[in-house]
């Protein structure tokens, strides 16, 4: 494992912890998109089916369990926790799941490496992960007032995706290893979705003002 991959995993882990910490300690999920969290839960549930069939390493299994556990507990908090659920802004978080899930399903059926159930679910999860942040980005743009923790959560997620790209580039030059083009394109699309957010995040950081996205 190279440094970019490890840093990517760590920022991913940090993003999830920041979000759980916010929800658990402040008992608020204001500004957090339940739609995005449900999509991530679906992404991990379809991608990590291999924990039952393959063993890669303790690190790999532990990380998969953390991402599965955290995404489902965040969904549980927002839907079921008697205090947290009150802070959920349903009126603003209106993005439709099927608008993203159906095209990804269709794309996975059309473009994949192998036509097996496990492979199709993996490909579907790659496509869905690329766009799962969209409801969260739309919500941020609508609410305007972004609290620090939500801003950091999205920033860390974007950093994780950028580091994965660097990891693939590094592996290409050091190991001559080609990541499959499906992974490449989905990864690039996903990273580009954060470009706009990154711009405003750095601007607010540079000028030391509160993060606000333009309407």
């Amino acid at each position: 494992m190279n440094i970019f991959r490890l840093a990517g995993d760590m920022t991913h882990l940090a993003s999830v912890l920041v979000l759980l910490l916010k929800i658990h300690t402040i008992k608020s999920c204001a500004g957090v998109s339940l739609k995005t969290q449900e999509l991530y839960a679906l992404v991990f549930a379809t991608r990590y089916l291999d924990i039952f069939t393959d063993f890669i390493s303790v690190y790999n299994t532990v990380m998969k369990l953390i991402f599965l556990g955290s995404s489902f507990s965040i969904v549980w908090y927002i839907r079921r926790h008697k205090i947290v659920r009150r802070s959920y802004d349903k009126e603003q978080d209106t993005f439709r799941h099927y608008f993203l899930v159906l095209p990804c399903l269709l794309l996975a059926l059309l473009i994949h490496e192998k036509f097996t159930v496990k492979e199709l679910l993996w490909t579907f999860s790659i496509y869905l992960e690329a766009v799962a942040i969209l409801p969260q980005l739309v919500l941020l743009q609508r609410t305007r007032n972004i609290d620090n923790l939500t801003g950091q959560y999205v920033f860390l997620l974007g950093a994780y995706r950028s580091l994965y790209i660097l990891n693939w580039i590094y592996r290409y030059f050091t190991e001559r290893h080609f990541v499959h083009w499906i992974t490449w394109i989905a990864g690039l699309v996903q990273t580009l979705l954060y470009a706009d957010f990154f711009y405003y995040y750095f601007e607010s950081w540079k000028n030391n003002v509160k993060l606000q996205l333009p309407a």
């Binding site: 494992m1 991959r5 991913h12 890669i56 390493s57 998969k64 991402f67 592996r171 499959h180």
Partner: peptide, 10 residues
């Protein structure tokens, strides 16, 4: 053949 590196990525 299986791509072990791909399987390792999260």
């Amino acid at each position: 053949e299986e791509d072990l590196e791909r399987k390792d990525e999260l």
